[in-house]
Every structure is written in C-alpha cells, then in structure tokens.
Design a protein around this nucleic acid. Structure first.
Lengths: 170, 170
DNA sequence: GTGCCCATGTAATCTGTTACATGATTAG
DNA sequence: CTAATCATGTAACAGATTACATGGGCAC
C-alpha cells in the first residue's frame, strides 16, 4: 500500500458490514439490503453502491469472484485487510457516539411556526404514520435475524420516543 | 418563477429555520449555529452554506441586505414565499417520519465481529463518551432558548436510550 | 504588528441520486 | 410471449467537504 487509504465512509462501512455478515454476496443483493432498510437515508442506489464496491475492490478490502452463470454475476467477500479496516471503522468512537441526523428532530423545534390548524393536522398525521411504521416493524421482528432485530429494536425505541413526544402513544 | 423549484434540501430547510427564528442574520452566524450543533452531520462548512444561501436568494426565498459596515457583512431574512415553502418542508411527512441516520445504530449490529476484548473496551469508551456528551448537554440546557432546549431534550432521550442499551450489552 | 475572530467566497475533489442502458433468467 | 426480477454498470447532475484566498476589525 503506497498510499494510506482514507477512513471508510459510512456507506463503505455499511457495505463491508453486510459482506461480513453474508460473504459471497452480489452487489445487487447488497443494494437490496439497503433498499429494504427502514432508513430512507441510504437508498442503495446503483450509482452509489457499484462505485463504492469498486473502490473497496481496488483498495483490496474485498475480493470479487465471478459466479459461473451467464448473468455476469460476481460475489464479493471481505479480505483480511478489509475486516481489519472495518474493525477500525466500527471502533471510530467520534463517529459512533455522535447523535446522527434525525429529520424529525431537525423539524420539531420549527413546527411552532405553522398555523395552529395545520400544525394540529400535521401532528395527527405524524402520529398515524409513526404508529403505522412501528407496527410494521413489530410485525416483521419475529422473522428477522438477530442483528437485524437489534437494529429494528433501536428504531422502535426511537419511534416510541417520538410518539411519547407527540403525546399520543397508544 | 418560470420553473417550479424542487423541494428544499435538508440543509436549505434547516437554514431557513435558523433565519425564521432569527431574521437579519449573516451567513456566517448561520454557519456558527450548525458548527455548534451537537450533530456532526452538518458541519456548517462554508462550501455548503454559502452556495445554499445563494440558491435560496436566487429562488426568492430569502432577501439579502447589506449591512453598512466595511466587512461586507450582509444579513438574510426569509421572504413570504420562503416562509410558505418552508412550511411545506416542515410538513413533508415522508421525510419527517423517517428514522433518519444514526451511526450508532448502523454499527450496533456489527460490533459482534470485534474480538471480545476490543469490544468490551469499545463499549466502555462509548458509554463514557455518551455520558460525557449527555452531561454537557444537560449543563447547557438551562441557558438554551425554548426551541433549542426541545431539540436538546430529544438528543438526551436518544443518549439515555443508548446508555440503557450499552448497560445491558456487556 | 501579530494573531485571532468576523465575514465573504471559490476551486478541486468526492460522493450520492436519478435516470438510463444492457442483457439473462424466471413466473404467469 | 411478456413482464418482472436478477445483475451489471455508466452519465449527467446536485450537493457536501476540505482547503484555500481575501480582507476588515480588535486585543495585547
């Protein structure tokens, strides 16, 4: 390695995480994992995932292996180097300990600018949407693998907190 | 306006929020608000804030007024149009109801890959950092304006949740 | 006068989104 | 046969970060 690699981005770290949990995975399958995640922040768009995987491959963090099929499928697996750098990414306390970015929290302090009727309507809609999302996650929880269930549980805690704040938990 | 403006980005919405709460504010002061926020996600970098403010001004969402001083200072205030579009941004349920992006949550399911000793050390460090951040926010809470206090309270709830989780993880 | 904060901005670079293009396989 | 899904990618564009450049005002 002539040039020290910059630290992994969030997306690269998340991709490596998927690959560590399920090696021999195609880029397409990685995309689906993101697309099915509850957070809209990572859409798993092709223009993000494929270049990121190319970067990881060029840096020697993952190994790409062609599957025999005619579709040109190729599976990715983390290398030893990839796992080591991913460990460092996991231990990046400065990033892991930050509060992150929450669109609800960003807006909450500003909803007071809305006319009262519109605000009331919004609060009701938000509560409805939040309960709906919460119930959907709860229902799926049983079928989830342990790590996914952990993540889902943390999302549920967040949604419950929002509902408490909205004042209509139920 | 011949061309319908695309929806406000998160940064543009946040900037307009700052300007609604404190009109006649300089771009520099807006940057400081972001830089002092707890979330590392928006650093309030010059290369993000100044172009965003130029976009808002070009779109007629804010009005820019030169202050008399020699420093070239110019204050921004939302226009009526800006306030209306900001209201719409505030009411974007699809975005406000999403769980957002939480670096702690992203990593939590992957910490099991770490060697036990490193994991234990990380958990301890995370707990220490989280308690430290929590205490810092708690201390500042008294001096905060009502909207800031609301946001801070939501961050505190998130940190408490993480501490609860870290306490059980072991 | 030196260094720091106020205050503005730009340029290079990187990353992500949207939309498109290609082709194989499978379900109806 | 047709439509959906699997599977790969690229191109145009928008947005953010870092680093730099400029200059006024103020404190020591």
């Amino acid at each position: 390695m002539t040039k020290a690699r910059a630290a992994l981005t969030e997306l690269e770290g998340a991709i490596l995480g998927v690959l560590r949990r399920a090696p021999e995975t195609t880029a397409y399958a990685v995309r689906k994992v993101f697309a099915e995640s509850w957070s809209a922040e990572w859409s798993g768009s092709a223009g993000a995932v494929y270049p990121a995987i190319q970067r990881l491959a060029r840096g020697g963090l993952i190994r790409v292996k062609r599957t025999g099929d005619r579709r040109g499928g190729q599976t990715c697996s983390p290398t030893v180097l990839g796992a080591r750098l991913h460990d460092d990414w996991l231990c990046d306390v400065a990033r892991a300990a930050g509060p992150g970015m929450d669109p609800f929290r960003t807006r909450a302090a500003l909803w007071s600018f809305l006319p009262k009727s519109r605000r009331k309507h919004l609060m009701a809609t938000l509560a409805r949407e939040t309960r709906s999302l919460r119930d959907e996650i709860r229902l799926g929880l049983a079928q989830r693998s342990a790590p996914d269930a952990l993540t889902d549980t943390m999302v549920l805690a967040l949604l419950d907190e929002r509902l408490r704040w909205l004042g209509q938990a139920r």
